[in-house]
Design a binder for these strands. Structure first.
Length: 841
DNA sequence: GCAAGGTC
């Protein structure tokens, strides 16, 4: 039996489809899907991994061994003294509560003193995907031939090498080879499997050195930042080779903005009309530095009614066709169409797996010679919307493509590999496919020619200028309309013509500081600097959000983010710049081509980290204070009305829910409840009562500003009678249901006015104007209410257990299932979920 | 309780 190991399940499936004679048989080995088929009279089976199946970690198995446990050595080779506690987070035995030593130190807690030893701790590879490993070994036992068919890149080689090490544990004799492909198409796959090569162990070692270095630096610095000012479990302050330089970019931009001194300037715009056409023009001096100058111009044109067209300049310019897509340029272009980087990658992955586009994680922007451009255009002509354009292109005979700056040979730039049907793909899938297909055709097209027109109109000696753009030769723009300003048509004007002057306005403006990064821009900047990979950049940015180093979009750093960046910049500058990645890349190239060893590269990195610790540890007090101040500044909402100390956003240690508490606790017991959603401090005080205000952003809602004091009149709401109580009505009583706000917690809900005897109550959305209706829910008899939200009025039955709710949920699920193609497995799980819900109730 | 890199 021949065993083919791929990086992911869907690749295993596709490869089986392409290599097998007839349809492969989908099977399972311990819950892992595998695909069996026949080829040239032999039995084959493919299995997909889930990316990396092993994960590096410090050696827990050895650290806790009592007999000859690893004690740890530092740079000098000194053995870790007994008075420095173990540094690994897991206690050696299973227990719910973490054990304490006699002096109250929590065992297993991270220890500052142990960090220099951690920098030299040995690393081993532990299983990460145990189920997959078990299935892989089971198959490997029976295999006569092993073919590693993971992705064709450095991490792919490492994933394959890890898989092989698992296989070797159970089968040492079967010969091993490597299939290399860069698109899952019939040609590529057949070619790869008829031209098998050997696994590149050097390349895999290069990948492993990256893993080691990332773990060592990440663990040491993250632990340092977390424990230098411990803020409770769950409050990790992370640092890493990619995330910290990325944070530094954001902080640096914020610094530029803070240092920016805005300058005033004045802009004069004038309105003109010619026959029925109106147009606007700006004074030839685009920005007046002084108000006096601007006023002088306004005085010159005061009272004028006519202007004269003094010149019309026309200039043609060519706009070059765009270059082929790589991951970053695709993400940027898709972001402009409303698809976030993360979403774009998810969709691209599925389009790739379904054979519509080539491999989506690439840097390359130059089509390889082997790519059949004309053949691809022919294939695309099956899409009705592209057909006429494709035919035009094919008429040209030879096709020449534009070339981007980056040229690598692992994968071709992202291009379509098959025609797609807009009715078969989902909306966003088609949107992305359409972008990719049109971009591909655009890269084979001529430049566009635009005629720019500059018209100057004179009013009492003051020149006003307006510009228009007209497309004279569409070129690539005929197929690629993305990212363009609309043509700006000007009325037909001639030199010497007189036009009506409709008056001028002078506006005072200020120069703007450099803009904050948007997520899309930051990803582009990360790519430019070589930070992260196309597959990880969006995840890195998300990480910075979850550890609260950054907030909002466009991105601004928190005080904590700035403090972390400053502290590391002073004492561990290596981790704050992209240079570390650049050096690592060079070293990895060295390992891949055999001039360096992984051992040598990792050991050197450990030494550098040790030097960093020598700087960092003596300055711990300073770092601690800087972090404390920053955390307090981020949490600050205003002064305490009782004791004057700081009111802060805090998390309850028991429930983890947020509240506002006084920094003077336990001496001062002032607290305020908080509504659900994201909470931010706001500078402006409540106009009604002068207390601090907060910005609340509930899930899928617009942010709203509210006073923190529940007793403030702005937080009061009159009780609303919403109907009659169905429970009491059944007993023959006539009682009203009332919507009211609990004055202490601000929670709004409906309850029966007879609440001493009747416990009928319904929850309500917590904000939005509440309006009673005459209607009663057809399913449960509860009164229907209308809540006016930012997205418009919303009529609902407040009864949480209303039978109508379940029906609605089922319909929604059915709809979602139908959209996804309604696979049997899907609807089965949906049913299970809904029945689970029902039992829970 | 750590990183970054794959994939889900």
């Amino acid at each position: 039996m021949k065993l083919v190991v791929t990086e992911k399940n869907i690749a295993a499936q596709k490869i089986a489809d392409l290599l097998g004679v007839g349809k492969p048989k989908a099977d399972k080995v311990y819950n892992t899907p595998v695909y069996r088929f026949e080829r040239a009279g032999e039995e084959w089976v493919t299995i997909g991994l889930r990316g990396h199946i092993l994960e590096p970690d410090f050696m827990p198995s050895i650290v806790y061994s009592k007999k000859d446990g690893w004690q740890g050595v530092n740079a000098e080779g000194e053995v870790r003294p007994a008075n420095i506690p173990d540094f690994l987070p897991k206690p050696p035995f299973k227990t719910k509560r973490k054990p304490f030593t006699a002096d109250g130190v929590q065992m297993g807690a991270w220890k500052m003193d142990a960090l220099p030893y951690l920098a030299y701790a040995p690393i081993e590879k532990l299983p990460k995907e145990k189920d997959i490993i078990r299935s892989l070994k089971n198959l490997a036992k029976k295999a006569d031939d092993i073919i590693i068919a993971t992705d064709f890149d450095r991490e792919g080689e490492l994933i394959g090498s890890d898989a092989l090490s698992c296989i070797k544990e159970v089968n040492t004799t079967a010969p091993v080879s490597r299939a290399r492909y860069s698109a899952i198409t019939k040609e590529e796959i057949t070619h790869a499997f008829t031209n098998l090569v050997a696994l590149d162990e050097n390349l895999a070692q290069a990948g492993e050195s990256r893993q080691d270095i990332d773990l060592i630096w990440g663990a040491v610095l993250t632990r340092y930042l977390t424990i230098v000012k411990f803020a409770g479990y769950g409050n990790v302050r992370s640092s890493g080779r990619v995330q910290t330089p990325t944070l530094a970019l954001i902080v640096a931009r914020e610094r530029e903005r803070m240092a920016f001194v805005p300058e005033d300037y004045w802009v004069i715009k004038a309105g003109f009309a010619h026959n029925a056409d109106e147009f606007e023009a700006t004074h030839a001096t685009a920005r007046f530095k002084s108000e006096a100058e601007a006023n002088a111009v306004m005085a010159h044109v005061e009272g004028a009614t006519k202007g004269t067209v003094t010149s019309i300049e026309k200039r043609k310019r060519t706009v070059a066709a765009p270059v082929p897509f790589n991951t970053t340029s695709l993400m940027a272009a898709a972001a402009a169409e409303g698809l976030s980087p993360a979403r774009t990658m998810r969709i691209a992955e599925s389009l790739y797996m379904d054979g519509y586009i080539s491999y989506p994680r690439v840097d390359n922007t130059v089509y390889p010679e082997s790519l059949d451009l004309a053949g691809t255009v022919k294939r695309l002509s099956d899409v009705p919307a592209y057909r006429p354009y494709c035919q035009e292109l094919l008429k040209k005979g030879t096709l020449t493509a534009t070339r981007g700056k980056k040229e690598t040979t692992d994968h071709p730039p992202i291009h379509p590999t098959a025609a797609a049907d807009p009715d078969k793909l989902g909306g966003p899938e088609w949107k992305l496919y359409n972008l990719i297909a049109r971009r591909f055709l655009a890269t084979l097209s001529d430049a566009a020619v635009v005629e720019g027109t500059k018209v100057t109109v004179d009013v009492n000696g003051e020149p006003f200028v307006t510009r228009g753009d007209v497309l004279v030769k569409p070129g690539f723009r005929a197929i690629y309309p993305y990212g363009l300003k609309k043509d700006e048509q000007l009325p037909a004007l001639d030199e010497g013509m007189t036009v009506d002057f409709k008056g001028a306005t002078c506006t005072k403006k200020q120069t703007e500081p450099p803009a904050r990064y948007s997520q899309g821009k930051l990803i582009q900047e990360m790519e430019r600097l070589g930070l992260g990979t196309k597959a990880t950049r969006h995840a890195i940015i998300e990480r910075l959000y979850t550890v609260k180093y950054i907030q909002n979009d466009p991105i601004e750093p928190s005080q904590l983010g700035i403090a972390v960046c400053d502290a590391l910049g002073r004492f561990a500058p290596q981790i704050t710049t992209p240079d570390m990645t650049a050096t690592l890349e060079e070293d990895m190239d060295g390992i891949a081509n055999g001039t360096k060893t992984r051992r040598e590269v990792v050991d050197l990195s450990r030494d550098i980290l040790n030097d960093v610790l020598r700087e960092l540890l003596p300055h711990s007090e300073e770092v601690k204070e800087a972090l404390s101040d920053a955390v307090a500044a981020d949490a600050y909402v205003g002064p305490c009305p009782k004791c004057g100390k700081d009111l802060q956003l805090r998390a309850s240690s028991k429930t983890r829910s947020m509240f506002i508490g006084c920094a003077g606790w336990p001496d001062c017991d002032v607290t305020y409840p908080l509504p659900k959603g994201k909470i931010e401090a706001v500078e402006e005080k409540c106009p009604t009562c002068g207390m601090p205000q907060i910005k609340v952003t509930a899930f899928r809602s617009k942010p709203r500003i509210m006073c923190i004091d529940p007793n403030c009149p702005t937080n009061q709401e009159p009780d609303v009678v919403v109907g009659t109580c169905p429970t009491c009505a059944a007993k023959g009583l006539n009682k009203k249901l009332i919507a009211s706000k609990n004055p202490r917690t601000l929670k709004r809900f409906i309850r029966c006015e007879n609440y001493d005897e009747c416990n009928t109550s319904y929850p309500l959305p917590q904000y939005g104007e509440l309006i009673a209706t005459e209607e009663v829910c057809e399913h449960c008899g509860a009164p229907m209410v209308v809540v006016k939200t930012a997205r418009g009025p919303w009529k609902l039955c407040p009864n949480f257990n209303c039978p109508g709710k379940e029906k609605e949920a089922e319909e929604k699920e059915a709809k979602a299932a139908a959209k996804k193609g309604g696979s049997k497995a899907k609807s089965a799980t949906a049913k299970k979920a809904s029945s689970k819900k029902a039992t829970a109730k």
